[in-house]
């Protein structure tokens, strides 16, 4: 495998012959500023893709475009073979794309347990079902994930009353509730202590191994991303600078000059 700035990224995980996410020519401008320029971005099933770059390189904008949180000006996005270019964020989430946010977005008026339950929203759920308490399968799923993250002692606390690191874990629980095929992690280690970062890495790997969930991980924590990613995409000034395995990226002179340093 070679690093590439423009070509379609290679499939890296297992014997997959298709991508679950295939974005082509994504372009997004804010006024006169072109935040993302003609970026191709693909993810194979079960693949962990790191997305790195200097501040203002367009990482979060690209993530927003992929989840339809930010409408792209140009380009196509296919998720699980379906064109999601015209869908709302809510519809994309229901199709199996979970995400966490750079600034944690929990619901502080709800308990941790209720936050977890809310992560599971299904397409076509009628009002009658919505008016009932969450069903046994939803509670079971929430219980499993909360146990995996080792936070059952937090379940009845209000989400606004727990620490920043714990909030990151609860966000990951929410993102995983509807058994997604792809989860976008936006700076998940920001403000988290080293011990919890190790735990977070472990949980991501477990979920990746056992449920074959693909992850797109946006990070400034280079150690975290190099230890977890199957492939790393480097953005610079809204464009793709490099795309390859962690080893290839670490030896790429352009990347070292633009981002990693000596």
């Amino acid at each position: 495998m070679t690093t590439s700035a423009t070509s379609t990224p290679p499939l890296t995980k297992g014997q997959q012959d298709h991508y679950i996410l295939e974005a082509r020519g994504i372009t997004k401008s804010f006024g006169g500023v072109r935040a993302v320029r003609e970026v191709d971005f693909c993810v194979a099933p079960g693949e962990i893709v790191g997305l790195v770059g200097p501040n203002g390189s367009g990482k979060s904008t690209l993530l927003g475009c992929l989840s339809r949180d930010i409408p792209a000006d140009r380009g196509t996005i296919e998720f699980n073979g379906e064109d999601i270019g015209g869908l709302r964020t809510m519809q994309v989430a229901r199709r199996g794309m979970g995400r966490t946010f750079q600034n944690v977005r929990l619901f502080p008026e709800l308990t941790v347990w209720e936050n977890a339950l809310l992560g599971r929203q299904w397409k076509g759920v009628g009002l009658g079902k919505l008016l009932r308490p969450p069903d046994a399968a939803t509670r079971q799923r929430a219980g499993d994930l909360i146990d995996l993250m080792e936070i059952p002692h937090l379940t009845h606390l209000y989400a606004g009353n727990i620490s920043g690191g714990q909030m990151r874990l609860v966000e990951l629980v929410m993102a995983m509730m509807s058994s997604p095929t792809l989860v976008l992690l936006d700076e998940a280690t920001s403000g988290v202590n080293p011990t919890l970062i190790e735990s977070l890495k472990h949980y991501v790997k477990v979920l990746n191994d056992e449920e074959n969930v693909a992850f797109i991980v946006v990070e400034h924590n280079i150690g975290f991303i190099f230890s977890i990613a199957d492939r790393i995409v480097v953005l610079d000034d809204g464009q793709q600078l490099a795309n390859g395995t962690p080893h290839e990226i670490s030896e790429n002179k352009e990347v070292i000059d633009a981002y990693l340093g000596a």
Partner: peptide
């Protein structure tokens, strides 16, 4: 009420 955009991102209509 807490975060409408966040709710939308969780799949809430």
């Amino acid at each position: 009420k807490d975060d409408e955009r966040g709710a939308e991102a969780r799949g809430i209509n």
